[in-house]
Simulated scan of single mutants.
Amino acid sequence: MTLDPSDMPSNSEADTATTSQRLRNFLVAMVAIALSIALFFGSRQQTEQPSLSALAADSTPIEIALTNQKPTLMEFYANWCTSCQAMADDMHSLKQEFSDQVNFVMLNVDNSKWLPEVLKFDVDGIPHFVYLDGSGEALASSVGQQPRQILADNLAALVAEDTLPTSKAMGQTSIFQPAVRGNQDDPRSHGGMPAGGI
């Protein structure tokens, strides 16, 4: 079989094919770089969601919340509580939206300092939310993971001094059993109470 010179690509056709291939390779490389950058920043954004500890550190101290005449949303939580963790973004955005009008108080149930409040508000599952009016009187509570909109509606009603639209709501919870006596075997106790309890 002999090759006909007219069947052979000319140099200009070969150059065009090579240039086209280089352009495709360049575009593929650019798309890969762009996707890598997007994934990097997307994963950074996901890991930078507010932590429960950061939210608690930025919350209003209970002593101030009970005396400043503003309504209060009190959240009982624990760092190990997956429902509490799942709500951290919503709680952060709600605090940004309502912080001028509402106190946001976070009480870690693992800290025995809050045992009187845990008992007073019958906390047996977390997250546990208590809505307090400006005088510190409990108006309603909800237990478990709550949709952001329910919390927002309740906070808006709290600010307006209206009846809360969802005053008793239940969601997914982490079971919490308050330790009335110090128990060094309890991994959540962190050695917070002396032997013999209160």
Score class of each variant (00 low, 15 high):
Leu3Val: 14
Pro5Thr: 11
Asp15Leu: 14
Asp15Gly: 04
Ala17Met: 10
Thr18Ser: 10
Thr18His: 09
Thr18Ile: 13
Thr19Val: 01
Gln21Cys: 03
Arg22Pro: 00
Leu23Arg: 13
Ala29Gly: 15
Ile33His: 03
Ser36Pro: 00
Ser36Trp: 09
Ile37Cys: 01
Leu39Cys: 04
Leu39Trp: 07
Phe40His: 02
Phe40Arg: 02
Phe40Cys: 04
Phe41Cys: 02
Gly42Glu: 01
Arg44Ile: 06
Gln45Ser: 05
Thr47Ala: 11
Thr47Pro: 00
Gln49Ala: 12
Gln49Lys: 13
Pro50Thr: 05
Leu52Asp: 02
Ser53Val: 09
Ala54Tyr: 03
Ala56Glu: 14
Ala56Lys: 05
Ala56Ile: 10
Ala56Leu: 06
Ala57Pro: 02
Thr60Asp: 08
Pro61His: 08
Pro61Ser: 07
Ile62Gly: 06
Glu63Arg: 12
Lys70Glu: 05
Pro71Phe: 03
Pro71Tyr: 02
Pro71Ala: 00
Ala78Asn: 07
Ala78Ile: 08
Trp80Arg: 00
Cys81Gly: 07
Cys84Gln: 03
Cys84Lys: 11
Cys84Gly: 01
Gln85Trp: 00
Ala88Pro: 09
Asp90Glu: 14
Asp90Met: 11
Met91Phe: 14
His92Phe: 15
His92Leu: 10
Ser93Arg: 15
Ser93Val: 14
Ser93Ala: 15
Glu97Asn: 11
Glu97Tyr: 08
Ser99Gln: 15
Ser99Met: 09
Asp100Trp: 05
Asp100Ser: 12
Asp100Lys: 15
Val102Phe: 05
Val102Trp: 06
Val105Tyr: 04
Leu107Lys: 09
Val109Ala: 10
Asn111Trp: 00
Trp114Pro: 11
Leu115Met: 14
Val118Glu: 03
Lys120Asn: 13
Lys120Trp: 01
Asp122Gln: 07
Val123Ala: 05
Val123Pro: 07
Ile126Ala: 06
Pro127Val: 01
Pro127Asn: 08
His128Asp: 10
Tyr131Gly: 09
Asp133Ala: 09
Gly136Arg: 11
Gly136Ile: 05
Leu139Met: 13
Ser142Leu: 07
Ser142Phe: 01
Val143Trp: 04
Gln146His: 07
Arg148Asp: 06
Ile150Lys: 08
Asn154Ile: 14
Asn154Arg: 14
Leu155Gln: 03
Ala156Ser: 09
Val159Tyr: 03
Glu161Gly: 08
Thr163Gln: 13
Leu164Glu: 02
Leu164Lys: 10
Pro165Val: 00
Pro165Tyr: 02
Ser167Gln: 12
Lys168Ala: 15
Gln172Val: 14
Ser174His: 06
Ile175Ser: 10
Ile175Tyr: 07
Phe176Tyr: 14
Phe176Asn: 06
Gln177Val: 11
Gln177Thr: 13
Pro178Thr: 04
Val180Ala: 07
Val180Pro: 00
Arg181Asp: 11
Arg181Lys: 13
Arg181Gln: 12
Gly182Glu: 04
Asn183His: 02
Arg188Phe: 04
Arg188Asp: 10
Pro194Gln: 11
Pro194Val: 15
Gly196Cys: 06
Ile198Leu: 12
